[in-house]
Amino acid sequence: MQKAKGITNKFIHKWRKYGDYILLGLPGFIMLFIFRYLPMGGLIVAFKDYNVRRGFFDSPWVGAKWYNMLFMSDDFSIAFMNTLIISLLKLVCYFPVPIILAILLNELNKRYFARTIQAVIYLPHFISWAILSGILFSLFSPQLGILKVLGIEKSPLLMPGTFRWLLVLTEIWKASGWGTIIYLAAISGIDPNLYEAAIIDGANRFKRIWYITLPSISGTIVVLLILRLGNILDAGFGQVYMLYNASVYDVADIIDTYIFRVGLSTGRFSLATAAGLFKSVIGLILVLVSNRLAKIFNPDAGIM
């Protein structure tokens, strides 16, 4: 009895102490639970022959049928390889660009000029791929665009050799400006005394960047790299779907477009879920591995 009273008192005490915070956080937790965790239950569809009328629970179990179908399919393996190649190209070519841009913006002395540049490079982020694809079709049109001036007679969007690079370039153009925001925030958190001390010691701009700015934002870079690695199988559905065509299917069909075409458009939800789950598991493994690697090199780095 005494013990129970003690527990109640302890609870009341804790509630008085932290109740406001719990209430404040509650809507967020509930939203997270409803929209992020609850839908995970639907993953069982990947192991069932999902029938809409029967629902999640009454549809028959089929084991790994959909995975066998996926892994036996040439198209899925092509889509998987394309996804990896496009993602890695984007990772290698795109990832450093926002860092470099952020450092360059930080080095600009004229505040007004820096703000203008920022506004200009943020702009493409707000334009959807549906609109951008229209602009790109016109831009790369041998009849209407700049290619006509250059005398190019075939649209680069039709060439398997150039299509992936176009994806990378357009991704850099669209996303790198917006990607600078986190790095700029990290840079603004660096203690100005460090720069002042470095100037007194005779460090030029490059040395200040190399010895102060980059090490100071390295934690942010590592976290973003880990998160990016987790999404390595997200090669950019919207971009590829809007830009690809039959001529470049073999180099541009990614897992997401495959799922969309074979799974969602034809209503085979089990197959689409199986492919989606496969993607997520690979992503999770990559996050865990890269986090572990980051910890080995620097115990303070990483996200967990």
């Binding site: 039709l158 065509n245 039959a246 075409r261």
Partner: peptide, 19 residues
């Protein structure tokens, strides 16, 4: 579905464009 959707489109376009 891909034989009616993707396969023909791919070969048709590549053959016509000379690829």
């Amino acid at each position: 579905p891909d034989i009616f959707d993707k396969l023909w489109a791919e070969y048709f376009v590549k053959i016509v464009t000379g690829e």
